[in-house]
Design a protein around this nucleic acid. Structure first.
Lengths: 415, 415
DNA sequence: TTTGTTCGTAAGGTTTACTAACAAACGTGA
DNA sequence: TCACGTTTGTTAGTAAACCTTACGAACAAA
C-alpha cells in the first residue's frame, strides 16, 4: 500500500467498548522543540541504485541458480528466477563470453518440444586458493575447485615466525599453491586470526605479531589476483552456512584460541570495531576460574582452549577408572563453561544453529554433551526449542572451505 | 574486478624464501564425491530486481535525504544522493503529486545564481499513531507527527484484561487516537509484548493471553490503514537507532519483564523463531539465584525485573544509613547480573552501544554503574574500548517513538 | 552592462527487461 | 505418415529508468 492510500478512514465496524473498562486520558501536547529523530536510518537506503546495479544483481542470481541447482536449460533458469527467457538468454550470453558459464550440449531425456541446451557454471574452468593461518604451528593452504573439493594441499611450518617473516611464509605458501593450480584461479581467500577489517587489513593479530598489516593489498600486489581476507572464525562460518542453508549460524572455533563466527539474517556480522566473534576473553560464570594469559580469571579461553584442555588432561597420570572419570569431569566442566557463555547469545539472537569446530578428540563427546545440556538448561525451552548445537562435519578444512565460499561470494555474487 | 580479469599470473616479485623454513607438503587429492556446498547462500541474491525496484529505492533515498537533512533544493538533494538533478526533479515531481513532498517557496539567503526552490517532506500533512502494549497495567498510545513529536496521548487501563477483551481495548485505543488525529494518518505502529512474527501475528504473549493473534491483519481490517506490529523491545530499539545513528545497538528494556531489541549492521534482528531479544529467562551466573516464575533459579528476569527490584526494596524497612546501604547493594547486585549476561553478547557482536530503558529511579544510578563496571571487567578492554552503556533518553515514550519510526520506515522507506 | 554561477527543465541517448511473435525440433496420436 | 501441440531459444519492438547535453531564467559581482 502506498502512502497515498493512507487515509484516516472513519473507524468502521469494531464496536467501540463504551466506558466499561478503564479511564481514558486524552491530552494534547504543545508543539515545541527540535525534531526528535535526528537521523532515522530506519529509512534504509544510503546510496543510489542504477539500472546497471539491477543487472549485476540479476546476473549473480543466474549464477547462483546454476551453482546450486546444477546444469539446466536457460528456460529452467528463467522459471526458477522469475526472469524471462529473453533476459536469461541475454545474461547467459554475457556470462559465456566471460567464461563463467559454458554450454554442455543438449539434454538427453525424451520430452516434447525442442530439446534444451544445458548450461552450467564453468566448474572445470576455475579453481580457488584458500589459506588458513589460524593454526599455531603451521600455515595451511589448498587449491579447490568451485564445488569446494580440495584438489591440492600445501603447508608450511611456522616455527614461531612473526611479523614480516610470517608474511613471507604466507606469500610463499600462496606462490606454491598458485603453481599447483592447473587452471585459472578465480581468487584467493585467507582466514587470519585476529581482527581483520572489511578491506583486508589485519588490524591486530598478536600471535602473528601483525598490526595494521594490509594483507589483502599486499597479496593482490604480489599475485594480481582478487584476494579476500577475513578473520578465521568468520571465514569458517561461511563454510557451515554454505552447507546448512540456515539464515542464522554461530560457529565456535576452538583451537589455540577461542573465536566465533556469526551469521545473522543471512549476513556475516562484522562488528563496530571489526572484532565480532572475539569471545575468547569473555569471563564465564561467577565463581572465578583459571588464570588467563590476559591477566584475568575465568576467561572462556582459559577454560576451553585446546592447549589448556590438553595440558589439563596430560596432568592426569592414571589410566584407570578414576583417571577416566577425572578426564570426563575436566571435559564436562569445559563444555559447561561454553554453554554458560553461549546461553545469552543464543537467547538474544534466537539462534537455531550453533556449530562447534575444533579437535574432535576433545570436543566430540562429553564436552559436546555438557555444552548442549547447559545451553538447554539456561535458555528458554519453548523459545529455543529447535536449537541445535552440533559438531562441524568439515573437520580441519573448515577455514579453507570457508575461504572458498568467500571468494565465490566475492567474485561471483553481489558485493 | 571481474572474473575475466582473474588470471593466474606468474608469481611476480616477492622473493620466495627458499627452504629455510618448514617442510612443504604438496599432495593431490583424487576427484570424488558430490559437491560439498549444497547450498551456498553466500551468493546472496534470492529474487530478481527490476528497474522499477531501483526507482522505488531511489525514491526512498530522496525521501530519506529530505527527512534527515530538512528543507533544501532539488539540486541539494541531487548532490547529496549522487543522482542527477534531472532524476531528482522527476522523483520529486512524483512525490509532490502523491502529497509526500511539498514546495516551500524560494530560499532566502543571497547567493549567486538562480534562487533555489526549497522542498521538504510534507511534515504537516501526515501524522502517525503509535501503540504501546508493553506495560502491565495500561495500554498507551499517541498521535505523533513525522518528526516523532507527540501531538496527543491516550491510555486505557488494562485491568487484567486478556484475550479478546485485551484486543478490544487495543481496538478502542486505536479508534480514540484516530479520532484525535487532525490530519491524514500515515499508518499505525504497535509494540506488543511476546513473540511477534514479521507479518504482525502475535505468536505468543502469555501476559495478554494471546497466541497466534493476527493483530496487524485485524487492525488493518478495522481501520483500512497500514499497520505495523512488532515486539515491544524490538520497536523500542528503533527509536534509539533513529536517535543515535549507529549501525549496532542493543536495547535492554526492563519493566514487568525483561526484553531486548537488537539492531546489527543497521538491520533489526528478528531471530529464526521470531523471538530475538527474549533474554528474560536466560540463567545468570553459576551460583544460583532467586526462583523465577518459569521454575528455574537465577533467570535474568528473576534478578532484575522492575517488580522484583521494587519488592526487594520494599522489604527494607529502615530508612537509616544501613537501609540506604542495603538498598544500594540490591541494585548493585542486579546491575552486576545484567552485566554478566550482556558480556557474552557484547563480545560476540562487538557491540558499541548498549542502551538501558526502564524506571529511572531503579536503573539510573548504582544499577547502571554496576552494569557498566561488570561489563567492562568481563569483556576485552582493547576490543570493546569504545563500548557505551547508557540510559535511554526517551523515557517512557520509547515504544511509541519506535512505533513511529517503524511506520515511517515501512511506509516511506524500502521494504 | 557584462560576466559567471546556479537552478530547474527539456531533449535525446543508453541500458535494461519486458511482451509478442516465430522458427526449430521434438513427441503424440490419428 | 503427417498434422498438431509443446518446448526452446531468438528476434523485434516497447516501456521504464537514468544518464548526458543543452538551455533559459534569475541572481551576484565586477
Amino acid at each position: 500500500m502506498t502512502a497515498t492510500d493512507a487515509q484516516r478512514g472513519p473507524v468502521t465496524s469494531e464496536p467501540t467498548p463504551p466506558t466499561q473498562l478503564g479511564a481514558s486520558d486524552l491530552l494534547t501536547v504543545p508543539f515545541a522543540g527540535a525534531p526528535i529523530f535526528t537521523r532515522t536510518r530506519a529509512l534504509r537506503p544510503t546510496s543510489k541504485v542504477l539500472p546497471e546495479h539491477a543487472r549485476s544483481h540479476n546476473r549473480a542470481l543466474v549464477l547462483q541458480t546454476l551453482y546450486t541447482a546444477g546444469a539446466q536449460s536457460r528456460a529452467d533458469v528463467a522459471r526458477e528466477t522469475g526472469l524471462t527467457r529473453v533476459t536469461v538468454s541475454d545474461l547467459v550470453a554475457e556470462l559465456i563470453v566471460e567464461g563463467l558459464v559454458a554450454e554442455l550440449g543438449q539434454r538427453e531425456d525424451a520430452r516434447p518440444g525442442k530439446p534444451a541446451t544445458l548450461i552450467d557454471i564453468a566448474r572445470g574452468a576455475f579453481q580457488i586458493v584458500g589459506i588458513d593461518l589460524s593454526e599455531h604451528e603451521v600455515f595451511r593452504g589448498a587449491v579447490m575447485n568451485l564445488d569446494g573439493r580440495i584438489v591440492a594441499r600445501a603447508e608450511l611450518a611456522r616455527d614461531g615466525a612473526t611479523g614480516e617473516a610470517a608474511y613471507a611464509l604466507v606469500d610463499a605458501l600462496v606462490a606454491q599453491l598458485l603453481a599447483a593450480a592447473t587452471i585459472t584461479v578465480l581468487g584467493i581467500g585467507v582466514g587470519s586470526p585476529g581482527v581483520v577489517d572489511p578491506v583486508g587489513v589485519v588490524r591486530s593479530a598478536p600471535n602473528l605479531g601483525w598490526s595494521d598489516l594490509p594483507l589483502q593489498a599486499r597479496l593482490t600486489g604480489a599475485t594480481s589476483l582478487p584476494v579476500h581476507v577475513a578473520n578465521d572464525a568468520n571465514v569458517a562460518v561461511l563454510a557451515e552456512h554454505g552447507a546448512t542453508d540456515l539464515d542464522d549460524v554461530l560457529l565456535i572455533k576452538i583451537g589455540h584460541g577461542v573465536g566465533a563466527g556469526l551469521i545473522v539474517g543471512g549476513r556475516p556480522v562484522i562488528g563496530g570495531g571489526f572484532a565480532a566473534g572475539e569471545i575468547g576473553h569473555v569471563v564465564v560464570g561467577t565463581d572465578g576460574g583459571p588464570r588467563c594469559a590476559c591477566g584475568r580469571d575465568g576467561c572462556l579461553e582459559a577454560w576451553i582452549s585446546a592447549p589448556r584442555l590438553t595440558a589439563q588432561l596430560a596432568e592426569l597420570d592414571g589410566t584407570d577408572a578414576a583417571g577416566a572419570s577425572a578426564r570426563e569431569e575436566i571435559l564436562r566442566e569445559a563444555g559447561r563453561r561454553l554453554g554458560i557463555v553461549l546461553a545469552p547469545v543464543v537467547g538474544a539472537l534466537n539462534l537455531s544453529e550453533v556449530v562447534l569446530s575444533g579437535p574432535a578428540e576433545l570436543l566430540d563427546g562429553v564436552f559436546h554433551e555438557a555444552a548442549v545440556d547447559t545451553l538447554r538448561k539456561r535458555t528458554m525451552a519453548e523459545i529455543n526449542r529447535d536449537l541445535r548445537l552440533r559438531m562441524s562435519e568439515q573437520a580441519q578444512d573448515i577455514v579453507l572451505r570457508g575461504a572458498a565460499v568467500m571468494v565465490l561470494s566475492g567474485q561471483l555474487g553481489v558485493s
